[in-house]
Each structure stands twice: as C-alpha cells, then as structure tokens.
C-alpha cells in the first residue's frame, strides 16, 4: 500500500454515546481510497457503532449521540442536509442477512429505482450485474420473482451484498457478513471483495481475525470503545512493535 494514498474517510476525535454508555471514545484514523480497511475487535468494542455513525444512522436511533468528525471525501458527514443522498453513496451489509419481503428482482432493483431509473432494460442490466457480482445469479436467475426474504440465509446474505452493490456505492461497509453464511459462500464473497477493491473503498468489520488478515490492506483494532492501534495488516499480525493487547487478541488469547 502506498503511504500517500488518497484519504477516503478521515475520522477525528470520534466519540459515540448511547445515553450514559460510551460505545466509542475519542477515536481518530484514516481510511484510504480503494483499500479494504479491516476493523477487528471483540463484541461491544464499538465497531458497529462506528459504521452507524458513518452512515448517519444516529438520525434514526433514539439516544445515540455522536461527537467529533467523520469526513467523507473532504466533507463532514454531519454537513449533509440530504442524508439520503449520503446513504446512497454508502452500501451496507449487515451481520444478519436481510432479504426484503420483495421479489429477488425488486430487492436489487430498489436502489436504482429510488435513484430514478425507470427503464426496464437498464434495471435488468443492474440486477444481473449485481447478482453475478455477489455470486448469486446462477442460483436465482430462474426465480427472480420469488420473495427475497424466503431465500436461505447464505443466499439472503449474498442478496444483501448484491443490493448494496446496486446502489453503486463508492464506500462499502460490511459488518460481520460471514456470521450467517457457510464457509464456502464466505470464500466466494471474499473473492468478490478482492475484485471490488479496484472500484470501491471497503470497510470490513469482522470478528474473524483471520478474515481481516486475508482481506484487509490495513486493519484497526478496537477494544471496549477504544482504538488500540491501526496499521498495515501484515504489520499488525507479524510486526514487532505493537500493543500487548493487540498481540493477545490476534493470537486468540481473548475475544
């Protein structure tokens, strides 16, 4: 990774609270353009809260308070008056797959439709491209009319990824996407992510240390709301200069 890569997201002094509870405290780091940025850490370390803040979901979450700055492409996300256009730039994949109770086709066509695409041929093209990308096309191409919410867990997760891609995002957030997916599917999705790196910036939140090691260019380690360290992934796993807690975590002594 080149050292002077362009900064996609700059996080400065970010603190997130839910009422009295502090989910993330005074965190600063950068995410570079066209990299896979891994975030690892045990449950409750503030990983998901960070994603929610980045996507301005605090707006829809009662009691969630965000302090500090998250700068996307040079603009603080709190500047956005039209939150929806912010979210349209950011694709999100959740830990638990959410196939919307619409047809498979409509699941993927929803975002382009919302963005104003009307032409059937254009929609068809987006649906097929995104489903192919998410390694789901071959399984569902003959039943695009069936409900997305009734697919199997692994298929729903890939559908969620296809949907995130259908937004044509320039930032893709994945939150522990492999929880509900079998290992084979996980590997297929990981391959897709490696390809996608050329086009979008990816933030990969994971509780699987090895997954971060396989995919991420740089990785941050969160622990109970604190950023312990952020470094080139290989450095984090093999380097000599690092925080004892990071070493304990990546070597599996707690988590």
């Amino acid at each position: 990774m080149v050292a002077d890569a362009k900064v996609k997201v700059a996080v400065r002094d970010l603190t997130i609270r839910y009422g009295e509870d502090v989910a993330l405290s005074d965190v600063s780091f950068d995410i570079h353009e066209h990299e896979i940025f891994g975030i690892i850490g045990p449950a409750g370390s503030g990983k998901t809260s960070f994603l929610r803040a980045l996507n301005r979901m605090d707006e829809f979450t009662t009691g969630m308070a965000v302090d500090g700055r998250i700068v996307l492409d040079g603009h603080d996300v709190s500047e956005w008056r039209n939150l929806y256009s912010l979210r349209r730039r950011i694709g999100v994949v959740f830990p638990l797959p959410v196939g919307l109770p619409l047809s498979v086709y409509e699941n993927v066509a929803l975002a382009p439709r919302l963005a104003g695409v009307r032409k059937k041929s254009e929609l068809d093209e987006v649906v097929e491209r995104c489903l192919r990308r998410a390694a789901l096309w071959d399984e569902v191409k003959d039943r695009l009319d069936s409900l997305g919410s009734l697919l199997s867990g692994g298929q729903q997760q890939r559908l969620t990824i296809a949907r995130a891609l259908s937004q044509d995002p320039d930032l893709l957030l994945l939150d522990e996407f492999s929880i509900a997916v079998d290992p084979v599917t996980t590997m297929r999705i990981e391959d897709v992510l490696k390809e996608l790196r050329e086009e979008v910036t990816i933030v990969l939140v994971t509780n699987l240390v090895q997954q971060a090691r396989r995919l991420a260019d740089r990785t941050a380690f969160f622990l109970t709301g604190e950023l312990v360290e952020v470094a080139e992934t290989e450095e984090l796993f093999t380097g000599t200069v690092r925080d004892q807690r990071t070493r304990d975590y990546v070597e599996g002594r707690f988590g």
Binding site: D73, H75, E79, W80, N82, R89, V117
Partner: peptide, 19 residues
C-alpha cells in the same frame, strides 16, 4: 446511476441537493 463521477465535486452537489 446518478450520472455523476465520483469525487469531491459530486459530493459538494449532493450535500445540499434536495430532490
């Protein structure tokens, strides 16, 4: 789909764009 290229200029437009 938005017909814009990625990058800061598009962002600036998006921030205040109220469709």
């Amino acid at each position: 789909t938005t017909g814009e290229t990625s990058g800061s200029s598009g962002v600036a437009l998006d921030i205040d764009r109220r469709d």
